[in-house]
Design a binder for these strands. Structure first.
Length: 802
RNA sequence: GCGAGUGUGGCGGAAUUGGUAGACGCGCAUGGUUGAGGGCCAUGUGGCUUAUGGCUGUGGGGGUUCGAGUCCCCCCAUUCGCACCA
């Protein structure tokens, strides 16, 4: 028999699958549908890395398994191809991003096919293709029509190096997500999507998503719902109020001063009453220089400036409350103003100490002379008028009632989530289909005029001061709209746009009339299983759920939630245990493994490497083990025998069928492979294998290592491929062992083992156990006080000295 | 600071409901096969030990139990997420 020649076999079967269109998803097939979705890649010039393989290999196994189980499987792939790396590369090399993108996509596709992924490549989407982004623009127009896309002047995180505006989550730690440069705050007129309007729906929808608790929790925290009250504090001497959001209205009697964000509009509104305007302005200027990172991370001392000439009144105590500006209060959360309760909030306490404000105890228990008493989830109210003696929960309810009755405020729900900054000042993104008319108004483009294509620019470097390169495309920029001179919007959409709805397009990727046919959406959706990176659990998953829910509300998609189940693979670290990075030189190129050992080896190794959902270091030695296993399966063919397998082997076979099935469905691919290895080893141990058992092994292994399995299966005389071969079913009656090992222990320590018939009755078993010679030294001269019998497993004698 | 995860041999990692800790793989050791090397095969491989036995052992310390990697309490380390969230 020939040796296992991976590369020849793999090419052969890849061509065969392509010729047979083996992985084509059939719209409206009679079979039950299964939609397996993996996050589509950004086609970088570096090609695939091992992380991609791990991300796709899981659902690759599931997709192949489902086909064998008789499902009509949609397992698509595409490319999230707009974005900065391509644009930066294009600038550096002076090649147009269109060309770079096409090359990269082609390179990626070749690599994906070389690994044997069973994607339906006919459905591939490319977010940079005008026939795709036409519909991204269309969805934007729908959002705009509903008032969910708006422009606002705001301070934005700006990266001076990339010359782009970044979302908060792209500038965490005060550094640009992409280049690591420090972020500065810049005032700009930018686009937002009103995702906050969907906050509650996005939160509620989570209960229908099957996922790890921590994945749901991360989304919950990101949405950040909190219940509380809006309270209006009257200002002394002017007809105005200062509104705050608080979750602890019960502490209102302890509120002794107010703090507002340095950007708070109250400052401008009452500038003429404020007598220390210069000091205020100086503080504002200083705060603006700080990034949000510095404001929240580095500066733990509380600084601020008291407003002179303006103060608020505590509506309950009627005491005057000084107002401060301080940068520990953020304009972006709640109302940008707080009532400070120094007795029970450590930030307010520190501030009160510094600025000498009164500290009032309103919840009994702490020692306010040393620190704020913040352990106040429960407790009893004191110094609080009508709340005295009430517990915290009742006090909150009572206070809220009081506020509503006296028109001082009302209960409200606040969300941490902010609106989605939806713009980039770069070339390689979807143009926003809006024009600015000469009279200052904005107008959406006509749907029929979409796509609004990117103009072909020779020079797509950013314009001055962070304006989009599109501002330089004079011919494209100017037009006549509704009889007026107009200019086009020059910002482009962020990279999250195209990925917010790509899974919908897969159901009908070539449709020129709608983004996807409703009946096809109804057939294929929802996505049955979505796998991707942990890092996308908040942003991408929430953004795409938002778009999907919006489209549902507008009647364009049939179901409210897009995903039924979400998993996330762990990172593959470098062999040194550090995160793989070019600078550390610990990057493993998967294609080298394919060349050296074959794609099947790579696939098996990556799933065998460790728990799928945990990070794991790469090991070159481990790869060899995967290859050895496939070699063993290959050579096992020589041991096919007409004589039946040992009963113990048959039992193991059926147990393996059941466990591999279970493990695959529970993302335990590593143990599934381990069990296939055990089965293979057992066949060698009995020195033969029945044809039936060998074929079963091939079918179980096929989703992991399809090329070698197909080759061996064909060599057995089968003409039909394994793609739709029926998946093995375990026969429970054959899983029961004839004999079992029962552990004999004394006082919990294992002293002997006993091979007995599985159905032996308890009395006989005990008799045998007591007669076991190896137990005698531990029983002699003792009294057995207790006998524990776990059927088919263990006996424990509890003894004590006689 | 808050929340979540993780911690088991030389290494990656296994271990339904508490019931033989270390499956499977790597590495290593010894022997075999081979012109050599590789490959392959067999056996062994947590530690200690006065070895067919005994003791000990799942980050540390307590506890519950006949029995704890698994359950409870306290601590430590590490990773991730959020972060002055009012």
């Amino acid at each position: 028999m020939m040796d296992y020649q991976a590369s020849a076999i793999e090419k052969k079967w890849q061509q065969r699958w392509e010729k047979d269109r083996a992985f084509q998803a059939i719209d409206f097939s009679e079979k039950p549908k299964y939609y397996a979705l993996v996050e589509f890649p950004y086609p970088s010039g570096a090609g695939m890395h091992v992380g991609h393989i791990r991300a796709y290999a899981s659902l690759e196994v599931i997709a192949r398994k489902r086909r064998m189980e008789g499902f009509n499987v949609l397992f698509p792939i595409g490319f999230d191809a707009f974005g900065l790396p391509t644009e930066n590369f294009a600038m550096k090399e002076n090649i147009h991003p269109r060309i770079v993108t096409d090359q990269n996509i082609q390179h990626f596709t070749t690599q994906l096919k070389a690994i044997g992924f069973s994607f339906d490549y006919d459905r591939a989407v490319d977010t940079t293709d005008p026939s795709y982004y036409r519909w991204t623009q269309w969805i934007f127009l729908k959002l705009y029509e509903q008032g969910l896309a708006y422009r606002n002047k705001t301070y934005v995180n700006y990266c001076p190096s990339c010359q782009v505006v970044l979302a908060n989550e792209e500038s965490q730690g005060g550094e640009c997500d992409r280049c690591g440069s420090p972020i500065v705050q810049k005032e700009k007129d930018v686009w937002f999507l009103k995702i906050t309007a969907y906050a509650q729906k996005l939160l509620d929808g989570l209960k229908d998503l099957e996922t790890l608790p921590r994945i749901a929790l991360e989304q919950e925290n990101w949405i950040g719902r909190s219940e509380g009250a809006l309270v209006r504090f009257p200002l002394a001497g002017v007809e105005d109020t200062l509104e705050v959001f608080t979750t602890r209205s019960d502490t209102l009697f302890g509120a002794t001063f107010m703090v507002i964000a340095p950007e708070h509009p109250l400052l401008e509104r009452h500038a003429k009453h404020i007598t220390n305007g210069a000091a205020i302005e100086a503080y504002q200027a200083q705060a603006r220089l700080k990034t949000e990172f510095e404001r929240t991370q580095l500066v733990k001392d509380k600084t601020g400036v008291r407003l002179e000439g303006l103060h608020a009144i505590n509506p309950l105590t009627q005491q005057p409350m000084p107002i401060f500006i301080a940068d520990y209060v953020m304009m972006g959360y709640g109302t940008g103003a707080i009532m400070a309760v120094p007795g029970h909030d450590s930030r307010d306490y520190a501030f009160a100490k510094t600025y000498d404000c009164p500290i009032v105890e309103v919840i009994a228990g702490g020692d306010l002379s040393v620190e704020a008493y913040t352990d106040t989830e429960e407790g009893t109210l004191i110094n609080s008028g009508f709340l005295n003696g009430l517990d915290v929960k009742t006090a909150i309810r009572t206070m809220n009632d009081h506020l509503e009755r006296h028109d001082l405020g009302h209960t409200m729900v606040n969300f941490k989530m902010k609106d989605w900054a939806f713009n980039r000042q770069r070339y390689w993104g979807e143009p926003i289909p809006i024009v600015h008319l000469s009279d200052g108004r904005m107008a959406p483009l006509d749907e029929a005029s979409l796509p609004l294509e990117l103009p072909y620019l020779e020079d797509f470097k950013p314009s001055a001061e962070g304006a989009s390169p599109l501002a330089k495309a004079e011919d494209w920029l100017r037009l006549t709209h509704q009889g007026q001179e107009a200019t086009r919007e020059t910002d482009t959409m962020p990279q999250w746009a195209g990925s917010s709805w790509y899974f919908l397009r897969y159901t009908d990727p070539h449709n020129e009339h709608v983004f996807a046919d409703y009946d096809k959406l109804q057939y294929w959706l929802p996505v049955d299983w979505y796998n991707g990176g942990m890092e996308h659990v908040t942003r991408h998953v929430i953004y795409s759920r938002f778009w999907h829910r919006f489209l549902y509300d507008q009647g364009h998609v049939p179901y409210p939630e897009p995903y039924k189940k979400r998993t996330a693979q762990g990172l593959i670290l470098g062999p040194d245990g550090d995160k793989m990075s070019k600078s550390k030189g610990n990057v493993v190129n998967p294609m080298e493994i394919v060349e050296h050992y074959g794609a099947d080896t790579l696939r098996v190794y990556i799933l065998f490497i460790g728990d799928y959902e945990q990070p794991t270091p790469w090991s070159d030695a481990g790869v060899k083990g995967a290859r050895r296993f496939l070699d063993k399966v290959w050579r096992l063919k020589e041991l096919i025998s007409p004589s039946p397998d040992d009963p113990e082997f048959t039992r193991l076979l059926h147990q393996t069928i059941a466990e591999v099935d279970h493990d695959c469905e529970h993302v335990k691919f590593n143990t599934a492979i381990a069990k296939l290895m055990t089965l293979t080893n057992a066949a060698y141990k009995q020195n033969r294998i029945s044809l039936e058992a060998y074929e079963t092994l091939l079918k179980l292994l096929n989703p992991f290592a399809p090329h070698v399995c197909e080759e061996l299966y064909e060599a057995l005389g089968h003409e039909a491929s394994l793609v739709h071969a029926p998946y093995p079913k375990a026969d429970a009656s054959k899983m029961q062992a004839q004999t079992v090992t029962v552990v004999l222990s004394v006082n919990g320590k294992v002293r002997a083992k006993l091979e007995v018939e599985a159905d032996l009755d308890e009395a006989t078993l005990l008799e045998k156990a007591l007669a076991e010679p190896r137990l005698q030294p531990f029983l002699e001269g003792k009294v057995i006080v207790k006998r524990i019998v776990v059927p088919q497993k263990l006996i424990n004698f509890v003894v004590k000295d006689a």
